[in-house]
């Protein structure tokens, strides 16, 4: 299945939920936040959030920054 992940079209084979996408990119242990079609999804809901072809997924994290 193809999604727009962080602005790039990406194939994630066999993904049915957001948790599958997280596992696909090996992000299970990381401090991340996910926005699914512009809605923030809490970590505990990854497994029960279904994904569909063409969904927009933003995966963000904290990076160094000041002002």
């Amino acid at each position: 299945m193809k999604f727009q992940v962080n602005g790039i079209a990406r194939e994630v084979a066999g993904a049915t939920t957001l948790a599958d996408v997280v596992t696909h990119f090996k992000l299970d242990a990381k401090i991340i936040v996910i926005e699914h079609n512009l809605t923030i999804v809490p970590r505990e809901h990854y497994a029960n959030t279904p994904v569909a072809e063409g969904d927009k997924i933003e995966i963000v994290h904290f990076v160094g920054g000041g002002c």
Binding site: N6, L27, V33, V60, F62, V63, G64, G65, G66
Partner: peptide, 20 residues
Amino acid sequence: LTFAIRRLNLDNPDNPNFLE
């Protein structure tokens, strides 16, 4: 400590990250 929020680089998710 202040931080910024950015997209994760999915091609290199294991870049060292200060917060972690």
